[in-house]
C-alpha cells in the first residue's frame, strides 16, 4: 500500500487539485494531503467509509463514480485518481471516459490478473485465484472486470488514450513498463500504475 501511495504521490505535482475516486477510508487522501496538496476531494460509495473520511475532516462526497462523476465540470481537477477500483465497476470503459473528462490527467492503478502467482492458481489448482492482493472468493468478490497490465495497456492504445507513464510494482520493487518489456512486466508484477490523458 505504502509503495503505491508513494508512486502516486510522485506522479502528482505540488499544490494541484486532486480527486480520489473510490477513496475508501481516506488513507491515500490523507497521505497526499500531508505530502503534496491540500486541495483534495474524494468520492466514495460506502456510507460508512464516507463517514470515516468526513470524521477526519476530509472533503468526501457519497456517490457512485458511474453516475456521479457527471456533476463535475470538464477538467475541473488536475489529477483524478482511481486506485484499485476499476475492476469493480459494471462499466469500466464508461468510468475511464468520465475520469478523463473530469481530470486533466488520470492515475489508474490495477491489481494485475496477469501476475504469475495468479496465473498459476488457475493453471495448476484449476480454481479462481485468491491472493494477498485479490483476497476474495469467486462468489463474494466485488471485482467484476479483472484485467491484466497488458489488457489495460492495449485498451489505452486502442482507445487513443495517451499513457504518460506506466509503472509496475512487485512487492516493493518499482520499474517502468514499456512496449518491449510489457509481456515480462505483465507476468512479474502484482500492480500496474498508469498516468494517462485523453
Amino acid at each position: 500500500m505504502k509503495e503505491e501511495f508513494n508512486i502516486i504521490s510522485n506522479l502528482i505535482e505540488e499544490n494541484t487539485r486532486v480527486l480520489d475516486v473510490g477513496c475508501g477510508n481516506g488513507d491515500l487522501m490523507k497521505f497526499l494531503q500531508e505530502n503534496k496538496t491540500k486541495d483534495i476531494r474524494g468520492l466514495e460509495i460506502s456510507k460508512e467509509k464516507v463517514q470515516n473520511c468526513l470524521s477526519k475532516g476530509l472533503t468526501v462526497i457519497e456517490g457512485n463514480a458511474e453516475s456521479d462523476l457527471k456533476q463535475f465540470p470538464k477538467s475541473s481537477f488536475d489529477y483524478v485518481i482511481l486506485s484499485q477500483t476499476l475492476q469493480a465497476f459494471l462499466n469500466p470503459e464508461l468510468v475511464i471516459n468520465e475520469l478523463l473528462k473530469v481530470g486533466k490527467k488520470v492515475i489508474v492503478t490495477i491489481p494485475n490478473f496477469g501476475y504469475w502467482r495468479v496465473r498459476l492458481q488457475l493453471l495448476f489448482k484449476g480454481t479462481m485465484p485468491v491472493t494477498e492482493n485479490l483476497p476474495h472468493e469467486w462468489y463474494n468478490t466485488p471485482n467484476l472486470h479483472m484485467c491484466t497490465i497488458k489488457d489495460f495497456y492495449n485498451f489505452c492504445s486502442s482507445k487513443n488514450i495517451k499513457i504518460f507513464k506506466s509503472i509496475a510494482l512487485k512487492k516493493s520493487r518499482i520499474s517502468e513498463i514499456n512496449k518491449s518489456n510489457l509481456n515480462y512486466k505483465n507476468l512479474d508484477s502484482h500492480l500496474g500504475i498508469f498516468l494517462i490523458e485523453s
Binding site: 464516507v50 462526497i61 457519497e62 456533476q71
Partner: peptide, 18 residues
C-alpha cells in the same frame, strides 16, 4: 445542492445518514 456546488468546483462534502 451538492451537484450545484460541484459544478462550480466548490468545496463540498456530502453524506446520507442511515
Amino acid at each position: 445542492i451538492v451537484i450545484a456546488l460541484n459544478s462550480i468546483g466548490a468545496d463540498v462534502g456530502f453524506v446520507e445518514i442511515e
